[in-house]
Simulated scan of single mutants.
Amino acid sequence: MTAAPAFPPLVEAYLADLERALASSDPRERAETLAAVREHAAEALALHGADDAGARRVLDELGPVDDIAAASTPAASGPGGGPAAAQAPRTPAADVWLVVLAVASLAVFVVPLVAAAAVVWAAVRLRSGAGNRGLQRLALVVGAVSFAGALALYVSHLVAAG
């Protein structure tokens, strides 16, 4: 088991503030968000240096804790007021429409712009860390396959015409 990287005190304080700010968030999303922020901080500190200047630069890149916490999904509460472990997590409508767009790009793969839009949108949603990552990955793969098919069709047309 590997130990978590040691962060400068400024980053540790930021992470502690973030953990407190995410206390009312969905537990799974809270864990994913904290892991993503820790990973980004470790990578950025390796790039910029682990001194105070590097730590400040990393914190500037991450932005205010309140902004990250505001983007998180609140934890669902059951009838007793506690977390609703039995409830299935809600799939954001944006992710459903993303998959619909990706599948539609297969139907109209001669228009690679639709597939490109699905790929870009899926990549943006994946990088944001919000929503259903499974649906986002599915849309990314389907859109990429559709785009590759459209590109292959275009290239074969050029070869046949030339």
Results as ranks from 00 to 15, higher is better:
residue 1 M to Q: 09
residue 1 M to G: 12
residue 1 M to P: 04
residue 1 M to R: 07
residue 2 T to H: 12
residue 2 T to R: 09
residue 3 A to D: 04
residue 5 P to I: 07
residue 5 P to D: 12
residue 7 F to V: 12
residue 7 F to I: 03
residue 8 P to I: 12
residue 8 P to M: 04
residue 8 P to K: 10
residue 10 L to G: 02
residue 11 V to P: 00
residue 11 V to S: 03
residue 13 A to R: 01
residue 13 A to G: 10
residue 13 A to S: 10
residue 16 A to P: 07
residue 16 A to H: 06
residue 16 A to G: 10
residue 18 L to I: 06
residue 20 R to W: 08
residue 20 R to Y: 07
residue 21 A to D: 08
residue 24 S to T: 14
residue 24 S to W: 10
residue 25 S to W: 00
residue 28 R to A: 14
residue 28 R to W: 13
residue 28 R to C: 10
residue 29 E to G: 00
residue 30 R to K: 07
residue 34 L to Y: 01
residue 35 A to G: 13
residue 36 A to L: 05
residue 38 R to T: 06
residue 38 R to K: 12
residue 39 E to M: 14
residue 39 E to V: 06
residue 39 E to S: 13
residue 41 A to R: 04
residue 42 A to G: 13
residue 44 A to P: 00
residue 45 L to K: 01
residue 46 A to M: 07
residue 47 L to I: 11
residue 47 L to N: 07
residue 47 L to K: 13
residue 51 D to R: 09
residue 54 G to Q: 04
residue 54 G to E: 01
residue 56 R to C: 03
residue 59 L to Y: 14
residue 61 E to P: 11
residue 62 L to T: 05
residue 62 L to R: 08
residue 63 G to M: 06
residue 65 V to D: 06
residue 66 D to N: 05
residue 67 D to I: 05
residue 68 I to A: 01
residue 68 I to P: 01
residue 69 A to P: 06
residue 70 A to S: 08
residue 71 A to T: 09
residue 72 S to F: 02
residue 72 S to I: 08
residue 76 A to V: 14
residue 78 G to L: 11
residue 79 P to F: 10
residue 81 G to T: 12
residue 81 G to F: 03
residue 81 G to C: 13
residue 84 A to P: 02
residue 85 A to T: 12
residue 86 A to Q: 11
residue 88 A to T: 09
residue 88 A to Q: 13
residue 89 P to L: 02
residue 89 P to I: 01
residue 90 R to T: 10
residue 91 T to E: 15
residue 96 V to W: 05
residue 96 V to I: 13
residue 97 W to I: 03
residue 98 L to A: 02
residue 98 L to V: 02
residue 98 L to M: 07
residue 100 V to K: 00
residue 101 L to T: 00
residue 102 A to H: 00
residue 103 V to F: 01
residue 103 V to R: 00
residue 104 A to Q: 02
residue 106 L to R: 04
residue 107 A to Y: 08
residue 107 A to N: 09
residue 108 V to E: 02
residue 111 V to C: 08
residue 111 V to M: 10
residue 114 V to N: 04
residue 114 V to Q: 00
residue 114 V to T: 12
residue 115 A to C: 10
residue 117 A to C: 11
residue 120 V to T: 05
residue 120 V to D: 06
residue 121 W to R: 15
residue 121 W to C: 11
residue 122 A to S: 12
residue 125 R to L: 11
residue 126 L to Q: 15
residue 127 R to A: 08
residue 127 R to C: 11
residue 128 S to L: 08
residue 129 G to E: 03
residue 129 G to T: 09
residue 132 N to H: 11
residue 132 N to Y: 07
residue 134 G to C: 03
residue 135 L to W: 04
residue 136 Q to F: 01
residue 136 Q to E: 14
residue 138 L to R: 08
residue 140 L to T: 00
residue 143 G to V: 13
residue 144 A to K: 11
residue 147 F to C: 05
residue 148 A to V: 03
residue 148 A to Q: 04
residue 150 A to D: 10
residue 150 A to G: 15
residue 150 A to H: 03
residue 153 L to V: 00
residue 153 L to R: 07
residue 155 V to I: 15
residue 155 V to M: 05
residue 156 S to D: 10
residue 156 S to I: 03
residue 157 H to W: 15
residue 159 V to L: 12
residue 159 V to Q: 13
residue 160 A to D: 13
residue 161 A to F: 09
residue 162 G to R: 14
residue 162 G to V: 15
